Computed example of a mutant assay.
Amino acid sequence: MEIVEKNVKDGAREYKFDNGAWVKLDIDGEYGSWEYQEDEDDEETYMEGGIWFDGKQIEDYDGCFELPEEVVAALNELGYSLDD
């Protein structure tokens, strides 16, 4: 799974992946929001939630039990980490 397209729109970052998934991140300091969809045309897979940071460390998130790997990959691209 690789990022094939990146865009910035109204301050939010959008990512498209080679597996058809789409991710949108809107980060403002210690808080952000995320959106995810397995395929741009598959509204049934749409998910969204919040995410909290301490510097570049992801402290907490909501909206799902486990962040989709594409959301984690997009956050890693920006230098954020789930690891201690």
Score class of each variant (00 low, 15 high):
78 L>M: 14
4 V>M: 05
35 E>M: 11
37 Q>A: 04
52 W>F: 10
58 I>N: 11
63 G>H: 12
69 E>Y: 06
37 Q>T: 03
79 G>Y: 03
1 M>E: 02
76 N>M: 14
46 Y>K: 11
64 C>T: 10
35 E>A: 06
5 E>R: 09
58 I>S: 12
18 D>E: 12
39 D>L: 04
81 S>P: 00
54 D>V: 15
78 L>A: 11
65 F>K: 13
60 D>N: 09
73 A>I: 08
27 I>C: 01
61 Y>I: 06
6 K>H: 10
17 F>W: 12
84 D>N: 13
64 C>Y: 00
10 D>A: 13
53 F>V: 02
13 R>F: 12
76 N>I: 02
84 D>E: 15
65 F>N: 15
2 E>D: 05
78 L>P: 14
52 W>H: 09
74 A>M: 15
42 D>R: 04
22 W>A: 08
24 K>E: 08
60 D>M: 05
32 G>V: 01
76 N>D: 15
36 Y>R: 03
83 D>N: 14
27 I>L: 02
83 D>T: 10
82 L>G: 04
69 E>N: 13
13 R>V: 08
32 G>K: 00
29 G>L: 02
22 W>V: 11
47 M>F: 06
55 G>L: 04
41 D>Y: 07
24 K>F: 02
3 I>K: 04
76 N>K: 15
71 V>Y: 15
23 V>G: 04
52 W>L: 12
5 E>L: 05
20 G>Y: 00
38 E>L: 07
78 L>V: 06
10 D>S: 12
81 S>K: 12
7 N>W: 00
71 V>D: 15
70 E>D: 09
4 V>R: 12
70 E>W: 03
11 G>M: 03
80 Y>M: 07
21 A>R: 00
78 L>W: 12
75 L>R: 10
84 D>K: 13
45 T>M: 02
20 G>F: 00
81 S>E: 07
35 E>T: 04
51 I>H: 01
59 E>S: 15
72 V>D: 13
15 Y>I: 04
62 D>S: 14
48 E>F: 07
68 P>F: 02
11 G>S: 11
38 E>F: 06
23 V>K: 06
48 E>R: 07
81 S>H: 08
59 E>M: 12
49 G>P: 05
5 E>Q: 08
77 E>P: 09
1 M>G: 01
75 L>M: 11
74 A>D: 11
74 A>N: 15
9 K>Y: 15
50 G>M: 01
53 F>M: 01
2 E>W: 01
54 D>M: 14
55 G>W: 04
16 K>A: 07
82 L>Y: 14
65 F>C: 14
55 G>S: 07
23 V>L: 08
44 E>A: 09
38 E>I: 00
46 Y>L: 08
45 T>P: 01
69 E>V: 13
61 Y>W: 15
10 D>C: 10
54 D>Y: 13
40 E>T: 05
70 E>C: 03
56 K>V: 08
41 D>H: 05
49 G>R: 05
41 D>E: 06
82 L>K: 14
61 Y>P: 03
